[in-house]
Design a protein around this nucleic acid. Sequence first.
DNA 1: GTCAATGATCTTGTATGCAAGATTTGACTG
DNA 2: CAGTCAAATCTTGCATACAAGATCATTGAC
Lengths: 224, 224
Amino acid sequence: MRGEATPRLREALEDDIVAGRLRPGQRLDEVGLAERFNVSRTPIREALIQLASSGLVEIRPRRGAFVLLLGPRELIESFELMAEIEAACARLAARRMGDEDRAALERAHHACEDAVRAGDPEAYYPTNAAFHAAIYAATGNRVLAAEALRLQRRLQPYRRLQLRVPRRMDASFAEHEAILAALLSGDGEAAAEALHAHVLVQGERFMSLITALQDEAEVVARAG
Amino acid sequence: MRGEATPRLREALEDDIVAGRLRPGQRLDEVGLAERFNVSRTPIREALIQLASSGLVEIRPRRGAFVLLLGPRELIESFELMAEIEAACARLAARRMGDEDRAALERAHHACEDAVRAGDPEAYYPTNAAFHAAIYAATGNRVLAAEALRLQRRLQPYRRLQLRVPRRMDASFAEHEAILAALLSGDGEAAAEALHAHVLVQGERFMSLITALQDEAEVVARAG
DNA sequence: GTCAATGATCTTGTATGCAAGATTTGACTG
DNA sequence: CAGTCAAATCTTGCATACAAGATCATTGAC
């Protein structure tokens, strides 16, 4: 077994959580994971600690690790934070982005368009994430971009549900169009406002779904 | 040894870093720390991993852990992120803060005033941090506040140096006054702008000092 | 039949052991 | 005398061992 185990485990678990294969609230048993990955508990624990620090996992002392389950309040607050950070990204990106960034942004936008045309939410999901990531990158501020990505990943398990809402995908894409136009025209304030609303509306639309998920997940947590 | 060791170790190391007892760039030897705290390497490693995830420590695989040393670019970017986040806090706080928050903010401001009167940068430092923290809390958004605090701590080892700059403490306090006035009058935009500038100016003023620290720390890192 | 208490079982948190990669030291070569 | 290669030493990363707290089940009382 070459290379180091811990980073690999962290990525594998992170993918499982972000992709929804591990559901919010689910318990992460150290021994079980160790067996699944054919390693000892030590690197598993270290990976779990890292995931806890980046906000994907919650470790309750002496009780074990759980996929982070955001309550309604935390969820609203997280989307609000995301909206503020993305708005800041829009402002900076509009001011600073270069030709390379513009091209990447347009590529990402077209990829979204393809997914919308295909009417495939599963395909839209990653292209949407990439579009937002392209905005982060266009700020030229790597620290800010890393922070935005971290938050994006933290919210992805929840976002994922939202694309199932009828017509949401088309609405999302239309909003992207307005954001992109504002960015390309260099109007940072307009882009910031549009992006802020775009993120917040997602948070708000989620709430009903989330509450449902919440109940479901709690049942899972209790049963599992 | 009752209670759990890891959280205690994390806090102790975090305090050492934030307070400047452990300098940026300094190596953190697992065995040495284990002896110092009378524990095995295991909880030390877990504490270091947590500190790495919150951005106070850098772990280079197979090379060990080091107190995070931000380069000039990362430092500028971090202050820019901090400025954006604090500006967002100001906007939200101006809209939402209650009487309790107002009172806490004024108390924090008066504590700053005392330190300025005494002309004591060492005393001003924590009161300044508390003033900013009061703004975070006044947003009513705990997720946002937690994020702001995390960044604040990450930058504290660097901020700490800046209060040594002549007259900086008085200028900082004067800026606080303007920020507080805007917040209390409910003018979120003005508060946001003032706070944004307040944070950014710190970042900019730091740069010369930082470069000096950078060199010094690298020497320490190489020697240690 | 429900609830509480107590012991068995399981899981976490920490210590210790060991192998592999990194660093240092010292000798040797040009 | 500087530079380089190699072996010895040190450190990390992972595995395993063990103790203490948490969970669960069984039993007994009401």
